[in-house]
């Protein structure tokens, strides 16, 4: 290859790779700037990623659903995208219903978060053999299940697992996309995520 051609090639490679990285950052920043913000209760587990450092896996209260308590869309199957309608009244968000499409209009004090159905059980009898009207149980995972923390602090957060005192501040847009903005313990903000 001629010298000019390889220099042009290098410029193309650099521009393409930089554009991919910039798009990743821009997408998250746009989401973090969303005006809708909720706090989700969670229980952290402390694993470690050899390449990405210390992080906690966040197991949200709004991940497990019981059809007897929360209405669940009948059409949802494992692997489907699910939309959980949330009430933002109170200190932490509560699930109102599980939908198979994003709601057209959100009421006041409502937000929606998009997840994916991990599994759904539609047994007619519960594991305790008690009768129930809707025995559907469902587990939904969200794309905000990892939170990277400074090295060594993962185990500190894990102690709040049993107390369910940990809250995650989440920014949401109208399509249900979510991004983590920070962490709260017993109502106190302990980590705040700056945009830059």
């Amino acid at each position: 290859m001629s010298k000019t051609r390889i220099l042009i090639g290098i410029a193309i490679a650099v521009l393409f790779q930089t554009a991919v990285l910039a798009q990743m950052v821009w997408g998250q920043i746009t989401l973090l700037n969303s005006p809708t913000e909720v706090v989700l209760k969670t229980t952290p587990i402390d694993p470690r990623d050899i390449f990405r450092g210390d992080y906690v896996i966040l197991n949200y209260e709004i991940s497990a659903f019981d059809g007897n308590k929360i209405p669940i869309a009948d059409s949802l199957e494992s692997g489907d995208e699910a939309y959980v309608l949330l009430s933002t009244q109170g200190s932490t968000a509560k699930a109102l219903k599980v939908l198979d499409t994003a709601p057209d209009d959100l009421g006041q004090d409502q937000a929606v978060i998009r997840g994916r159905v991990n599994y759904v059980l539609r047994d007619e009898v519960t594991t305790t053999s008690a009768d129930c009207d809707d025995c559907t149980s469902m587990f939904i995972s969200y794309p905000i299940d990892s939170y990277f923390v400074p090295e060594g602090t993962g185990t500190e957060l894990e102690q709040y697992r049993d107390e369910r005192a940990l809250g995650v501040i989440v920014a949401l847009n109208e399509e249900g996309d979510a991004a983590i903005k920070g962490l709260m313990i017993e109502g106190q903000k302990i980590y705040d995520e700056p945009l830059f």
């Binding site: 998250q28 905000i144 991004a179 995520e193």
Partner: peptide, 8 residues
Amino acid sequence: IGQMYHLP
């Protein structure tokens, strides 16, 4: 970047 912005 995934780590910085807590991407899944």
